[in-house]
Design a protein around this nucleic acid. Structure first.
Length: 213
DNA sequence: CATGGGATTGACT
DNA sequence: GTCAATCCCATGC
């Protein structure tokens, strides 16, 4: 897979968040198509970079096109792509994928081979929920905190351009999930109608749910 | 040095 | 719907 170059990321973070929809993320044998993103920028308080340059935010303020991986709720590793010129703290959170490759390995890492999670769901539902959240997709891909600061062009985590069939995905936008500040900003993007996105699922028809937000 | 709060998920009522 | 798990790190004393 040819990867996106640094100048793709060295742009306004909202543009990158939109343009990453439909792009491909791969780590080892596993890969998926990005179907949901959120933008974060140092100018608003939901962004970790809002507090300024600290050991935690060093990657965020660093060169664009690197991975910013941090631990959330003590449990999950969340994957971001650092954006904007070096010195500006901004990143796109990858929130959901449509699985493409390495699905058996992803299922194993997610613990879906057995137990309650596996048993009661259809195969289609399992595939839809394999990477339908920012913590789920890092677990499925095997991405850990060790990947923080890594280059997204040269790996180990790499992001490539939109593949055939994902050239012009229909986008929905809404407010970001799971934050307590700057909740009004509509900086969340996803593929309209995709069942691989995290909850709440935006209405595919652009109905009440999409209009409300 | 102690404390508190998450860019979440899965299990349970 | 509620809630615990679990840890990094920013903040304040």
């Amino acid at each position: 897979m040819r990867a996106l170059s640094q100048d793709f990321y060295e742009r306004p973070v909202l543009d990158v968040a939109r343009d990453l929809i439909g792009c491909t993320v791969e780590h080892g044998d596993a890969a998926g198509v990005i179907v949901e993103t959120e933008a974060y920028h140092e100018s608003e308080p939901a962004c970790h970079a809002f507090v300024g340059l600290t050991p935690r935010t060093r990657t965020l303020f660093g060169a664009p096109g690197r991975a910013y991986v941090y631990r959330s709720y003590g449990i999950h590793a969340l994957l971001n792509a650092v954006c904007e010129p070096e010195g500006v703290g901004a990143a796109v959170l990858i929130r959901a994928l449509a699985p493409l490759a390495g699905i058996d390995a992803m299922r194993a890492r997610r613990g879906l081979e057995r137990g309650a999670l596996a048993g009661s769901r259809s195969a289609a539902a399992q595939l839809e929920q394999l990477c339908s959240g920012p913590g789920k997709l890092t677990q499925a891909l095997g991405v850990s905190l060790a990947e923080n600061g890594g280059c997204l062009s040269s790996g180990p985590v790499r992001i490539g351009p939109r593949a055939r069939g994902w050239r012009d995905p229909p986008l929905l936008e809404g407010t970001r999930i799971g934050i307590s500040r700057a909740v009004e900003l509509r900086w969340r993007f996803c593929v309209a109608g995709s069942r691989h996105v995290s909850r709440p699922w935006p209405s595919a028809a652009g109905g009440a749910d999409a209009a409300r937000r």
